[in-house]
Simulated assay, not measured.
Amino acid sequence: MTSANPKLAIIYYSATGHGTSMAARVATAAEAAGAEVRLRHAAETADPESFAHNPAWTANYEAHVGKPAATGEDIVWADAVIFGSPTRFGSPAAPLRAFLDSLGGLWSQGKLADKVYAGFTSTQTAHGGQESTLLNLYVTLMHFGGIIVAPGYTDPVKFVDGNPYGVGLIANRENITAFDDATADALDHLARRVVGVASRLA
Rank of each mutant, 00 (worst) to 15 (best):
R97S: 11
L190I: 14
I176V: 13
E174T: 15
L96T: 01
F83I: 10
D74P: 09
D79W: 09
M142P: 01
D188R: 01
D74H: 06
L187P: 01
V81R: 07
D188C: 05
L190V: 13
L103S: 04
T133H: 07
P86G: 05
D185I: 10
T87Y: 14
P92K: 07
A113E: 06
P156A: 07
Y165R: 03
R192T: 12
W77M: 13
A93F: 05
V157Q: 04
G119E: 05
G72H: 01
L96A: 00
G166I: 12
G196E: 14
V197P: 04
V160C: 03
A186L: 09
S122R: 12
A150K: 03
A118Q: 01
D185W: 08
V139C: 00
V194I: 12
V160P: 01
A182K: 08
Y117M: 03
R173W: 08
T87A: 13
G145N: 00
V65R: 00
L112E: 05
G162V: 04
N172C: 08
S85A: 12
G90Q: 00
F144L: 02
Y153W: 10
T154C: 08
M142D: 04
D74V: 13
V195D: 02
L96Q: 00
Y138H: 04
L201D: 12
F159D: 09
A191H: 14
A93R: 03
H143P: 02
G110V: 10
V167H: 04
F179N: 03
L169A: 14
L112Q: 05
L141T: 05
